[in-house]
């Protein structure tokens, strides 16, 4: 089902020809801080894989190591069979990396940025280049802004340009760090359309996100917390694990409800959620067990309604991290 919090050297995907990324015991420390702690996972070719977690979970550090712009302090990862610790340059022609912070030249135009990255990757100028740029313009709707300075674009257009520059040399692996961060909903939709299109072409995509709706679009996600994987599976499978165990309780005194639930047997986790309380049980149940109901009434919580909850990835994350 899912990887335990500290999974050692085993990964769920065997390193074979269909593996794009294979991470084994990857560790990166910055002084006393361990940003990535003994991480192991695999990404299959053609997969959309998400690294999900709060700020400081180690998502960006992991992505930087895989992009060959940061050396690990322990463990290793292979990208298309090449070790990023030993030979970080070898896989660079085949990948594209999009940092979280806008990494293009603000004082170059849209077209100049595209050409710069096309030239760096040795994409010949001429008909092939034009058709490639044409296609990226069609996806991104950047055509009318071709001669505008990149620094003068809106946030959403900047991200679309960054993605276009990443795609200009037809990479086989896309590493995207929070590609939709700070992007308006329309542009976000555009970006996802481009990503879906790339997936149909067989490109592997590894992205980080803190948006759970985006995480749910991934084939598989790894939930990261403080540098470790707390869960790794298809989003639906992770949610299914909580099916029948999560309930939403509305009460006149949510604080009293929370206090009493946390002391009850059989409760895995209880947390305030707006003006209601979300409770997760250790075992699935048809409805909230009578013992809990009695305890709530005895504490004077003033229960108004109880409903089963369709678990979200957020609930999964909270459950796994005990948050």
């Amino acid at each position: 089902m899912s990887a335990p919090a500290s999974s050692g050297r085993d990964t769920d995907v065997a390193p074979d020809s269909a593996t794009a990324i294979h991470v084994r015991g990857l560790t990166r420390t910055f002084g006393d801080v361990t940003a990535v702690d003994d991480l192991s996972f695999g990404v299959r070719e053609g997969e959309l894989f998400g690294l999900v977690g709060p700020d400081g979970a180690g998502k960006t550090t992991t992505l930087r190591i895989l992009a060959g712009v940061l050396a690990p302090t322990g463990g290793d990862a292979t990208v298309f069979g090449v070790s990023v610790a030993r030979d970080p340059e070898a896989m660079k022609p085949r990948i594209a990396y999009m940092p979280q912070r806008f990494g293009l030249y603000a004082d170059l135009t849209v077209r100049e940025n595209l050409d710069f990255y096309g030239d760096l990757h040795g994409l010949p100028r001429g008909a092939e280049r034009e058709s490639r740029v044409e296609r990226l313009y069609r996806f991104s709707n950047l055509d009318p802004f071709a001669s505008r300075l990149a620094g003068k674009l809106s946030g959403g257009m900047k991200q679309k340009l960054a993605l276009s520059c990443a795609l200009i040399h037809r990479p086989q692996l896309l590493l995207l760090d929070e590609p939709t961060f700070g992007v308006d909903p329309i542009s976000r939709l555009d970006l996802w359309i481009i990503l879906q299109e790339m997936l149909t072409e067989g490109i592997t995509i590894l992205l980080t996100t803190s948006y759970l709706d985006e995480a749910e679009r991934c084939d598989r996600v790894a939930l990261l917390d403080r540098g470790r994987i707390v869960a790794l599976d298809a989003p639906r499978a992770l949610q299914a694990d909580l099916d029948g165990r999560a309930f939403e309780i509305r009460a006149s005194s949510p604080r009293a409800a929370l206090r009493v639930l946390r002391e009850c047997q059989g409760v895995s986790r209880a947390a305030a959620f707006g003006d209601s309380v979300h409770v997760t049980l250790n075992q699935p149940a048809e409805s909230l067990p009578a013992s809990l109901r009695q305890a709530l009434d005895a504490a004077g919580a003033g229960v108004e309604s109880i409903a089963t909850l369709r678990p979200s990835l957020e609930d999964v994350f909270m459950e796994r991290t005990g948050g």
Binding site: V69, K92, G103, L104, Y105, A106, L120, C165
Partner: peptide, 14 residues
Amino acid sequence: ERGTMEQLVSTPVT
């Protein structure tokens, strides 16, 4: 400082 280096060093340029 401008953050363009991170993108640049992820390409094959030496």
